[in-house]
Computed example of a mutant assay.
Amino acid sequence: MTITLRQLEIFEKVAACGGVTQASGQLLLTQSAVSMALAELERLAGAPLFERSGRRLFLNDRGREMLPQAREVLSRVRMIELFLDESIGAPKGTLVIGASTTIGNYLLPAMVGEFSRRYCDAKALLQVGNALQIEHGVESGELDLGLVEGLPHLSSLATTPWRRDELVIVVGQQHPWAAARTATQDMLREAPWIVRERGSGTREVFEAAMERAGVTYSIALELGHTEAIKKAVEAGLGVGCVSRMAVQRELDHGWLLEVTSTVDLQRTLLLVTRKNDYRTALMRAFLGMLEESRDVDEVKSEKAMESV
Results as ranks from 00 to 15, higher is better:
residue 182 T to M: 11
residue 223 L to D: 02
residue 163 R to I: 14
residue 131 A to H: 09
residue 170 V to D: 00
residue 277 D to M: 11
residue 82 L to D: 14
residue 233 V to F: 01
residue 262 T to I: 08
residue 48 P to E: 01
residue 107 L to N: 08
residue 170 V to E: 01
residue 89 G to Y: 08
residue 238 G to P: 03
residue 169 I to P: 01
residue 249 R to Y: 10
residue 145 L to E: 07
residue 290 L to G: 05
residue 252 D to L: 11
residue 268 T to P: 02
residue 245 M to W: 15
residue 269 L to K: 03
residue 57 L to H: 05
residue 2 T to V: 12
residue 247 V to N: 01
residue 106 Y to I: 02
residue 68 P to C: 05
residue 307 S to M: 13
residue 185 Q to L: 13
residue 304 A to M: 13
residue 222 E to R: 13
residue 152 P to C: 07
residue 119 Y to P: 03
residue 138 V to S: 07
residue 71 R to Q: 15
residue 50 F to R: 00
residue 241 C to S: 11
residue 93 G to A: 05
residue 39 A to G: 06
residue 14 V to D: 05
residue 91 P to A: 04
residue 68 P to E: 06
residue 273 T to N: 08
residue 143 L to G: 08
residue 14 V to N: 05
residue 280 T to N: 07
residue 299 V to R: 11
residue 230 K to H: 12
residue 5 L to I: 10
residue 132 L to I: 12
residue 259 V to K: 02
residue 249 R to W: 07
residue 238 G to T: 01
residue 83 F to W: 12
residue 190 E to T: 10
residue 101 T to M: 11
residue 229 I to T: 05
residue 234 E to I: 05
residue 128 V to R: 04
residue 239 V to K: 04
residue 65 E to G: 11
residue 66 M to N: 00
residue 121 D to A: 14
residue 47 A to M: 08
residue 280 T to M: 07
residue 183 A to W: 02
residue 115 F to D: 04
residue 49 L to I: 03
residue 12 E to Q: 12
residue 195 V to C: 10
residue 288 G to H: 08
residue 85 D to I: 01
residue 271 L to H: 07
residue 15 A to R: 00
residue 176 P to V: 08
residue 66 M to F: 13
residue 215 V to D: 08
residue 209 A to V: 07
residue 119 Y to I: 07
residue 193 W to E: 06
residue 10 I to Q: 00
residue 294 R to E: 12
residue 73 V to D: 01
residue 267 R to W: 10
residue 221 L to H: 14
residue 245 M to E: 13
residue 235 A to D: 14
residue 117 R to V: 09
residue 172 G to I: 07
residue 247 V to A: 14
residue 301 S to D: 14
residue 32 S to W: 04
residue 305 M to R: 15
residue 127 Q to A: 13
residue 130 N to Q: 07
residue 25 G to D: 05
residue 88 I to P: 03
residue 59 L to T: 07
residue 74 L to Y: 06
residue 146 G to Y: 02
residue 79 M to T: 13
residue 253 H to T: 15
residue 47 A to K: 12
residue 119 Y to E: 07
residue 44 L to G: 00
residue 41 L to N: 06
residue 219 I to Y: 06
